Amino acid sequence: MYAASRAATAVYRPMLDELGLTYPQYLVMMVLWEEAPRSVRELGEELGLDSGTLSPLLKRLESLGLVERRRSAADERRVEVFLTAAGASLSARAAGIPQRLADAAGLSGPELDQLRETLGRLTAALQSGR
């Protein structure tokens, strides 16, 4: 699993360099492209990241002009993350990346879906055993 993860990250790197993103930043953006705004807590739960890891990522994305963090008017303890216009438009440039990774891996769409499902089950099973 470790070798596959490293190899996938190496394939992602030049694609993400085109976008000016690191892999963790790309993951945050993918979650926000699915649904925004999201609270910092929701992002952390979705990505399995603690606030100590997530906060610097969000700070960097904000400095790149891709996201904006705002305190919730309803609950000032809650910080919400919004896409900026630049962040939203980056989605179109990133749209082909998952397929490019699948092509590099030689996997069909159904095989990639099966792999994602299997890895999701593995992750859930290992996390529930904590």
Rank of each mutant, 00 (worst) to 15 (best):
residue 56 P to R: 04
residue 32 L to E: 01
residue 70 R to Y: 00
residue 26 Y to M: 05
residue 55 S to Y: 08
residue 66 L to K: 06
residue 51 S to G: 12
residue 124 A to E: 11
residue 57 L to V: 01
residue 73 A to M: 09
residue 103 D to A: 04
residue 49 L to P: 10
residue 46 E to M: 12
residue 113 D to E: 13
residue 100 R to H: 02
residue 129 G to N: 14
residue 87 G to R: 07
residue 9 T to N: 15
residue 9 T to C: 10
residue 26 Y to S: 02
residue 71 R to Y: 00
residue 29 M to I: 08
residue 64 L to N: 04
residue 21 L to F: 04
residue 3 A to E: 15
residue 54 L to C: 00
residue 59 K to C: 13
residue 60 R to P: 06
residue 109 G to L: 05
residue 82 F to I: 03
residue 77 R to A: 11
residue 76 E to I: 02
residue 63 S to L: 05
residue 86 A to N: 09
residue 58 L to E: 00
residue 39 S to T: 06
residue 58 L to P: 00
residue 104 A to T: 04
residue 14 P to N: 09
residue 43 L to N: 11
residue 32 L to P: 04
residue 77 R to G: 11
residue 28 V to H: 02
residue 3 A to Y: 12
residue 32 L to C: 04
residue 50 D to Y: 01
residue 49 L to D: 00
residue 23 Y to H: 13
residue 82 F to Y: 12
residue 36 A to H: 14
residue 129 G to K: 15
residue 87 G to Y: 02
residue 130 R to S: 10
residue 127 Q to R: 14
residue 120 G to K: 14
residue 57 L to D: 00
residue 97 I to E: 04
residue 111 E to Y: 00
residue 64 L to E: 04
residue 13 R to I: 08
residue 2 Y to D: 14
residue 44 G to I: 06
residue 129 G to Y: 10
residue 128 S to T: 14
residue 93 R to H: 09
residue 46 E to V: 12
residue 29 M to K: 02
residue 16 L to I: 08
residue 61 L to A: 03
residue 28 V to S: 01
residue 28 V to P: 01
residue 49 L to K: 09
residue 4 A to G: 08
residue 87 G to L: 04
residue 97 I to F: 00
residue 128 S to M: 15
residue 46 E to D: 11
residue 80 E to T: 03
residue 23 Y to C: 10
residue 18 E to R: 14
residue 62 E to D: 06
residue 95 A to T: 05
residue 87 G to C: 09
residue 79 V to C: 03
residue 92 A to C: 10
residue 62 E to R: 01
residue 67 V to M: 01
residue 118 T to M: 12
residue 59 K to V: 06
residue 54 L to T: 07
residue 77 R to K: 15
residue 84 T to F: 08
residue 30 M to S: 14
residue 105 A to C: 03
residue 97 I to R: 02
residue 115 L to F: 10
residue 40 V to E: 11
residue 39 S to C: 03
residue 69 R to V: 00
residue 55 S to I: 12
residue 79 V to P: 00
residue 78 R to G: 09
residue 45 E to A: 15
residue 33 W to E: 11
residue 105 A to W: 10
residue 40 V to S: 01
residue 44 G to V: 03
residue 17 D to M: 12
residue 100 R to F: 05
residue 118 T to H: 10
residue 96 G to K: 04
residue 112 L to Y: 08
residue 35 E to P: 10
residue 89 S to L: 09
residue 16 L to M: 05
residue 66 L to H: 09
residue 65 G to Q: 07
residue 102 A to E: 04
residue 40 V to P: 08
residue 8 A to I: 08
residue 65 G to D: 02
residue 7 A to D: 07
residue 107 L to G: 03
residue 94 A to P: 07
residue 71 R to F: 02
residue 111 E to F: 07
